[in-house]
Simulated scan of single mutants.
Amino acid sequence: MTSMVLRTHTREARVPEMFDASPSPGQTRAPTPPAAQPVPERSAKQRDSFFDNAKYLAIVLVAMGHSWEALYADSRVLRSLYIFVYTFHMPAFIIISGYFSRSFDMRPDRLKRLITGVAVPYVIFETVYSLFRDHFGQDGETGITLLDPYFLSWFLAALFVWRLTTPLWKVVRRPLPLALAIAMLATVSPAISNDLDFQRLLQFLPCFVLGLCLKPEHFRMVRTRAMRIASVPIVAGALAVAWLVVPHIDFGWFYRRDAAQEMGAPWWTGPLMTLALFACSVVLTACFLAWVPGRRMWFTSLGAGTICGYLLHGFVLKYTRWEGWYDAHWLHSPLGALLVTAFAVTVVTLLCTAPVRRVFRCVMEPKMEWAFKQDPAQQARERQHGERKQPVREKAGV
């Protein structure tokens, strides 16, 4: 239940708050100019290249993993890569989401952004996905139900619930052990309702809570040369283990959708697999982050559009499966797998670009001013800010 730019935080780049890569408390900022000099509005809030790079690379891994689902049955190598990537790609995405949810409280403006940036997109995409499936699909499901997330929309439903619980995790004494205990109990509780994909929501909960617990210095710790060197044998060992266990393991463990009993396993394996997968996902996420560049790259700006890439690539993926694109025999070969992977990377990259974000901003983060009361505190802050700026504007001759 999913990765997460030193550039101007413009209106064009605004995306749902779930992946805001603005500098976090404790990160280095440029010194504040003297009060007599007007500060350009666009320099007040800059994005962090590292997190935008991480988000883009994580969403690329998500798209790659999805593209292999129709091919891995023919290749042990591809199945091994599949479970290796699935061990950490969504956990990395969720950890970053939790990290940027640390400041969430029940303040009216933040609740408004939670509704417009998460709840409304969930309703829209769950509806559109259901209609898309009914028209093109062959999954045997029909109709629209907002309580049963279809395909990728589960993440929005989970993020809405996780973020609402953020104030609770900030006041409990041991948030991460508590979240792990809840996830472990979920794996032995097949009676948990499927509404809002609740089983997956609970089993991925520790990743979100871990993100809430992290501080900027934790990310600096994994971005060292020593960590990059150490990550090489760790990743090699993880790939070797994946190769060894892939014929014997149920892939359902990596999806976190079912309790142990629903997968035909003894109940006690659920808590053990919860701890094992969480440990593996944290270690591999650290290895992944160790190699994420911190400087501006050609793909850095795409990190602002990862939610577009995540939600929209599902339509391409499902359509190609339903229309039989994978039926070609030559695709089920090493060269075919490489071409499919390259296609998936290209598609998700294009879907993260600024033109796509502009087109879908109306559904990704609608303003909906008509639906909300005006916040008196926010209006007072804006008036006070305007009063402070006026003398500066006059002095500057504006």
Rank of each mutant, 00 (worst) to 15 (best):
V209R: 02
G264E: 14
C280E: 11
W68S: 14
K215D: 05
S189Y: 00
L239Y: 03
P376I: 04
G303C: 07
A36S: 15
A276N: 01
F50N: 10
Y122G: 06
R163D: 13
R296D: 12
S193H: 03
I115L: 14
P149V: 03
M106E: 10
L338W: 03
V161M: 15
Q261D: 14
V316M: 03
M368Y: 11
E323A: 15
R174E: 07
R358C: 04
D139L: 15
F155M: 12
P108Y: 01
L114I: 04
K389M: 08
T274V: 05
L317W: 00
L6F: 09
P206E: 05
D327C: 06
M221G: 06
L350C: 05
C207M: 08
A236D: 01
L212W: 01
T2W: 07
D105N: 14
V15M: 10
C362D: 08
Q27C: 14
L277A: 06
F315E: 09
F104V: 08
R256F: 02
M221T: 06
Q378S: 13
A226R: 04
I115K: 08
Y56L: 07
P108M: 12
F100L: 04
Y86M: 11
A226L: 08
E69R: 12
R133L: 07
S24D: 10
Y82R: 02
L289C: 10
R321M: 09
P23C: 10
G324F: 00
F136I: 11
C308D: 09
L212T: 07
C287A: 15
V39Q: 14
L168I: 12
Q138I: 08
A238V: 00
C352P: 00
V292S: 13
W154V: 05
G305E: 04
M4T: 15
L275M: 05
P266H: 10
V209E: 09
L212S: 15
A371S: 15
P33M: 15
V62F: 15
